[in-house]
């Protein structure tokens, strides 16, 4: 090989320059780990939920409007089935047509509400809007973004390449894919952020008859949640309806809660908080979800890349020089 050391270094530098220039610098790349200043979210209280699915219906209705999570050009209302269509949309799980679903877990006879012993409890599944979302961190093109002000994790359709890494990465299995389409998109709850401008908020909270889902600033929701945990079961309490600071209250007896506000710490904290009378593991939450920032796991790897690039180029060049000389010496 007729190549001297200078040539080699020059070529190597030119080739790897692009990679180095990609600026894998922590400052540019680090994910936010603090709750955004104006973070909004939902508090779901499973003990208040009556399973009426009003949230599911109105979620579909209001997200089918332009800007909504289910909006599709040319389709004004995905929740309205065309005349003659051979199905009735009774969503069983989150899907590309359903970004909010009420599920149940029951045991034995299933007679006692909010009990694991011959009882049942409802659970409302939708995006938890992590403070440090794994889906946004793994998206190669930044099609999922966390709004720096209100913290809504939302989707930018025309960036998405459809690799579905977000679905792999989400610890709560939230993002769903339009497999049925040849021009598919990812669908997930976006907290109805398209309705904020008109002074509205998440449809599931607006139409919840009991106040099981309430909308508000995350800090207020956290206060409300911890307040409810201090209440004595059997006492009466004015549960706010629709929003956390609502004037409309629903007075009812307090059920027994599990001493746990889900979403304070899980996966680094979420903007969707949950209260329930049964353990959350029983409600389908993966027990292996740790109180850690998931993007840290991959960042630990990515952060090493610049060092690897520099190290490999240096060590490789040195090795090449040394072994080449030894070979020449042998031949010589």
């Amino acid at each position: 090989m007729g190549m001297n050391r200078r040539d080699f270094l020059r070529t190597a530098a030119a080739g790897s320059g692009a990679l180095l220039a990609s600026g894998v610098s922590p400052a540019f790349a680090s994910m936010p780990k603090e709750l955004p200043t104006g973070a909004v979210g939902i508090l779901y209280d499973a003990t208040l939920c009556i399973g009426c699915k009003s949230c599911m219906v109105n979620c579909k209705k209001y997200n089918s409007e332009p800007g909504g999570a289910l909006y599709l050009q040319g389709r004004t209302a995905s929740y309205e089935v065309k005349p003659g269509a051979p199905f009735w949309d009774s969503a069983e799980d989150l899907s590309s047509r359903t970004v909010n679903v009420i599920k149940v877990n029951k045991s034995g006879t299933g007679l006692n509400k909010d009990s694991t012993d011959n009882g049942f409890s409802f659970i409302k599944q939708h995006c938890l809007h992590c403070i440090t979302p794994a889906c946004a961190s793994v998206c190669p093109v930044g099609a999922l973004k966390k709004n720096p002000v209100n913290g809504v994790v939302h989707y930018i359709e025309n960036r998405c390449i459809g690799c579905r890494y977000c679905m792999m990465a989400c610890p709560f299995n939230i993002p769903k894919y339009e497999y049925e389409s040849a021009t598919p998109q990812v669908r997930k709850c976006q907290l109805c952020y398209h309705r904020y401008d008109e002074g509205k908020y998440s449809a599931c909270c607006e139409f919840c008859p009991t106040g099981a889902s309430i909308f508000g600033k995350v800090l207020d929701l956290r206060k409300e949640a911890s307040r409810r945990l201090t209440l004595k079961p059997g006492d009466e309490y004015d549960f706010p309806v629709q929003t956390v600071d609502s004037k409309q209250k629903s007075r009812r007896k307090v059920s027994k809660y599990i001493e746990h506000v889900y979403g304070l710490k899980e996966a680094g904290g979420t903007q969707y908080l949950l209260l329930a009378g049964v353990p959350f593991e029983w409600l389908g939450f993966n027990r292996n979800i740790k109180d850690q920032f998931l993007p840290d796991l991959t960042w630990a790897y990515i952060a090493k890349i610049p060092a690897v690039i520099a190290g490999v180029i240096l060590a490789g060049t040195a090795t090449w020089a040394v072994t080449r000389k030894r070979n020449k010496d042998k031949e010589g």
Binding site: A29, S137, V141, G142, Y165, T298, Y301
Partner: peptide
Amino acid sequence: MWQVNSIMFIV
């Protein structure tokens, strides 16, 4: 459209 947090981007 770089998103350097993503392993998929690196890949």
